[in-house]
Simulated scan of single mutants.
Amino acid sequence: MTSAAHPGHPYLDHPFPIPFAHRGGTAGGLENTAAAFRRAAGLGYRYFETDVHATGDGRLVAFHDPTLDRVTDARGRIGRLPWAEVARARVGGKEPLPLFEDLLEEFPAARWNVDIKAERALEPLVDLVRRANAWDRVCVGSFSESRLSRAYRLAGPGLATSYGVRGVIGLRLRSLGVPAPVRPGAVCVQVPRSQGGVPVVDRRFVREAHARGLRVHVWTVNDPESAAALLDLGVDGIMTDHLEMLRTVMTDRGAWV
């Protein structure tokens, strides 16, 4: 089992479908923390999924929500707080929020799928990738197609990007034989298996993506039956919260590196 031919971006240089540790693996309750990513690395994961927000003073934090309220012992909107205050919050009452630049440094062999959760985080992320020369280690995603287009314009073709919602819809329509525009320059498409009960990923969708030189990465897959079915369809990556599960499924297929 090998992945579809990729369009030449080194981020995608992997011989089998890519296993992604979604937020480092959220099943342990310490999502998007250095501790979670250390655990994922210890299990053999080399591709991590995370999210970024910019604090009020412009520091780039790896965190999913716009506010600290859900998973930390603190409160408040990250974009309105200085880093000094955000740094005092603890995920699950235990682990600090990491700066994305610190994660890049701590895990030099890792590759990151980074979801830009807010417009204010876009330029700091592009600047960080440029300063760290991390072009082969970062793929930028977002639900917003316009945000991804702007990232691509700011960074140029050295930055790997996925499709936003508009691009996914266009690709899905094309897979059904309906002409639709899609943004050039993306290297992958990252999608749920279905949305609102409507299938997104099927053989036609995978075939259309591969015909355009795009990898298909599916989120967030947490049961072995779904993981196996998607691998049978020929998807190129799976994001999961349940790290041991996906490793077992892929190991049984001889697709774990």
Rank of each mutant, 00 (worst) to 15 (best):
A151C: 11
R172S: 10
L171K: 05
S175Q: 11
C188Y: 00
R172T: 11
S175P: 08
R166V: 05
Q190D: 14
V182A: 10
A160S: 11
P181Y: 07
C188W: 06
C188I: 09
P184D: 15
A186Y: 08
P179V: 13
P184E: 15
G156V: 10
G177W: 12
S162L: 03
Y163C: 07
V182H: 05
S162M: 10
A155I: 12
R172D: 00
G156R: 10
L159D: 14
P184G: 13
R153K: 13
G185P: 04
L173R: 05
V165M: 13
L176I: 07
G158I: 07
S175N: 09
G177M: 13
Y152D: 04
G158N: 12
Y152H: 15
R172W: 13
A155H: 10
T161V: 15
G158C: 01
I169E: 01
G170Q: 04
A186V: 02
G167K: 06
I169D: 02
V187Q: 11
L159I: 13
T161P: 05
R153N: 10
G185H: 02
P184V: 04
Y163D: 04
L173H: 03
Y152E: 14
I169P: 03
S162N: 07
Q190F: 06
G164S: 09
P157M: 03
L171R: 12
L173Q: 02
Q190R: 08
T161L: 01
Y163Q: 12
A180G: 08
R183E: 09
C188P: 03
V187G: 01
V178A: 04
P157C: 05
G170I: 08
Q190T: 10
P184W: 02
V165H: 07
P184C: 06
G167T: 00
P181I: 08
V165W: 09
Y152I: 01
G167H: 02
Y163F: 15
R183K: 12
V187D: 04
V189H: 09
L154T: 07
V178N: 01
S162C: 09
I169T: 01
T161C: 07
Q190M: 14
L176M: 07
L171V: 05
R166A: 15
V168D: 00
V182W: 05
R183A: 13
L173D: 03
L171P: 08
P157I: 04
I169M: 11
R183F: 01
R172N: 03
R172Q: 09
A180M: 00
G156C: 00
A155W: 10
R183L: 06
R166N: 01
V168R: 07
A180S: 06
V178L: 12
G167C: 08
R183Q: 06
A151P: 10
R172K: 13
S162G: 12
A155Y: 07
P184N: 00
G170P: 03
V178P: 01
A180L: 02
R183Y: 02
R174C: 01
R174W: 06
R153Q: 15
A151W: 10
